[in-house]
Structures are given as structure tokens and as C-alpha cells.
């Protein structure tokens, strides 16, 4: 059937059908452009840091992917990450041996914020974007109130090394990859192999049908927000380990970036469609793009303009609503 398509139509089909592959291709093209702009950026160390940032963003967008597939949206990813990072530096305070308490408290904090998001968005029926934005504002203000604007402390050396050491002495293998060996299978299991994942896809596709099938729609949806909060918190403490010391709002841009990454990966805003592979590819695109913009020495303002236009373009590609005539 595909034989009688024009090349343009075939390209369109390709874009629509396999956003993950498309995203990988875009990422490679962007990287080639970066190397063309500044040839010095082609070295093992730079590739290593690209991998590092990509993994960090893909951890943050894991929760966002689950929430979007379930038909919601989570804008508090950035605020939760920043809060978790502040927790990390405050609890560790340059001492070893506090990883477990930190992990538990950060995950609990993330789960709590996620629960608030879920209850407000699902039970009360407010638009998810607005309510999560409002909650993330509150969480951000909370950081300022609790730290009086200047968070103290550093992460422990062991934790810092567990994220940034290059494996086997190879420059482009940062040890954050080890964390990916835990997170990626977990997300894949959650989305593709568990009952929860199937329910999320079904709810995203058609909440009414899901309810008639006997799924407790609101409970599953709230659970997606809780997972999102926990993944964000985990990404936040890893981010703290990478940065060593943090300020308030350090990771706030991850809210927007993770959303764009997930959309680049082909997850539909209307829910029910999407893969985590796509989100990882989308994260790669975002990181490479930001590298390119840095290489071109654009000011932060122009970067923002570019990101805004990119978002509009992506929405045009993947998320147009149906015509009223159809």
C-alpha cells in the first residue's frame, strides 16, 4: 500500500509512525551541526557529558511520560527535582553514609507532591497543567522559606563519584549509566509488562471505556502522578550529585524540557500513545540542541525564543486537534 505514496507523504508517515527513530535522526543531525559550528566539541569528554545530561533528563521525563500517557500532565517535575536536590545537599552535608535516608526522604517528598498533584488534578477535576503549575509554585516558595534563600551543604564525595566517575577509564562512559540500568528496566516494566501500565494506556485512550472495564480510573491516574513525583525526586538527587552544591530553583527548567522531550518522543498530549524509548530519544535531542545553542553562543533570551518556537513546531507536527469539519 505504501508503494504509491509520494516521498513527502512517505516522510510524513515516517514522522508520524516512528517518532523515536525520527528523534534519534534529528539528534544525530543536530550533533553534526554542532561539530560543524565548533569542531572542538567532538571529543570523548563532551560526548560523556552529553550522555550524562541525557540520562538525567530521561530520568526526569520517565514520570512525565507515564503521566502524559495516562492523559494528564505534570509541570511540577522541575520544582520537585530542585527540592530533592536541596534535600540531598542538606541531608548529606559532605558526609558519607547518608544515602539511604536521603533516598527515602526524597522519594517520600516526591510521592507526596505527586499525590497532591494527582488528587487536585483528578479528583477535583482541575486542568492538570494549571494545578500542577500552581503546586510547583508552592513547592518552589517552600524551598525559599525553608532554606531562607540559600541552601547549605554539599553532597558526599562517594555519591558524587558514583555519578561522575568515568567507567573503565573511558571518557564517554560516565557512571550514571549504572543508575540507568536500574531506572530504564523499571520504567519499561511499569509501562509495558505490568498490569498498571496496561491500565494507564487504556485510560489514556478512553477513560470511559476503561471505567466500564472495571478499572478504577482515578486511582490509577493519581498513581501516575505519584510515580512522576518519585522519578523526579530521584532525578533531582542525581542532579545534586552532579552539581555538588545547589541553589533554589536549580532544576526548574526541567519541567519544560522534560515535557518537550516527551513530546519529541511521540507521546500524545491526548494520552494513550507513547513509549519511553521515544522519551529517551527526545531527551537526547533536547540535550544536543542545547549544546548546539551553546556552541552558537546564543544569549539565554534567544535560546528561550528558539525553545518556544521549537515547542510550537512540535505541537504542529504531533498534536493538532481534529478539524471541526471532520
Amino acid at each position: 500500500m505504501k508503494d504509491n505514496l509520494t516521498p513527502l507523504m512517505r516522510a510524513k508517515v515516517f514522522v508520524k509512525e516512528s517518532p523515536a527513530r525520527m528523534a534519534f535522526i534529528i539528534a544525530i543531525l543536530l550533533y553534526v551541526a554542532t561539530v560543524a559550528v565548533s569542531p572542538t566539541s567532538l571529543n570523548a569528554n563532551a560526548i560523556g557529558s552529553i550522555i550524562m545530561m541525557t540520562l538525567l533528563l530521561s530520568f526526569a521525563s520517565a514520570g512525565q511520560t507515564i503521566v502524559l500517557i495516562g492523559g494528564g500532565m505534570d509541570f511540577s517535575v522541575g520544582a520537585v527535582m530542585s527540592s530533592a536536590a536541596i534535600l540531598a545537599t542538606t541531608i548529606m552535608n559532605h558526609r558519607d553514609g547518608y544515602f539511604l535516608p536521603l533516598l527515602i526522604s526524597a522519594l517520600a517528598m516526591g510521592a507526596f507532591v505527586g499525590l497532591c498533584n494527582g488528587v487536585c488534578a483528578v479528583k477535583i477535576g482541575l486542568p492538570p497543567m494549571i494545578v500542577t503549575l500552581a503546586i510547583s509554585n508552592v513547592v518552589t516558595r517552600m524551598q525559599y522559606v525553608l532554606t531562607q534563600g540559600s541552601p547549605l551543604g554539599y553532597v558526599s564525595d562517594a555519591f558524587f563519584r558514583s555519578v561522575t566517575t568515568r567507567l573503565f577509564g573511558v571518557q564517554f562512559l560516565p557512571s550514571i549509566i549504572l543508575y540507568a540500568f536500574i531506572v530504564f528496566p523499571l520504567v519499561f516494566f511499569l509501562l509495558n509488562r505490568s498490569r498498571f501500565g496496561k491500565q494507564v494506556y487504556l485510560i489514556g485512550n478512553n477513560p470511559l471505556a476503561a471505567r466500564l472495564d472495571g478499572i478504577e480510573v482515578s486511582r490509577v491516574q493519581i498513581l501516575t502522578y505519584v510515580f512522576s513525583g518519585m522519578f523526579s525526586a530521584f532525578a533531582g538527587i542525581l542532579g545534586a550529585a552532579y552539581m555538588q552544591s545547589v541553589r533554589c530553583q536549580t532544576f526548574d527548567e526541567y519541567a519544560y524540557n522534560s515535557l518537550i522531550a516527551v513530546i519529541i518522543g511521540g507521546t500524545a498530549l491526548s494520552g494513550g500513545i507513547g513509549t519511553y524509548t521515544g522519551s529517551i530519544a527526545g531527551s537526547l535531542v533536547m540535550v544536543v540542541l542545547s549544546n548546539l545553542l551553546t556552541a552558537m553562543q546564543l544569549s539565554p533570551t534567544k535560546r528561550n525564543v528558539v525553545l518556544g518556537v521549537l515547542m510550537v513546531l512540535l505541537l504542529v507536527l504531533y498534536n493538532r486537534e481534529k478539524n471541526v469539519r471532520q
Partner: peptide, 17 residues
């Protein structure tokens, strides 16, 4: 026909720039 909330959020960045 983009989702209004997200499209206008993206425009926030553009207009701010």
C-alpha cells in the same frame, strides 16, 4: 488547532524573548 494551554505557554518564551 494546537492545545491552547501549551501553545500559549510556548509563546510565553517567544514573547519574553
Amino acid at each position: 488547532r494546537l492545545p491552547a494551554l501549551l501553545a500559549s505557554y510556548a509563546l510565553t518564551f517567544v514573547i519574553k524573548g
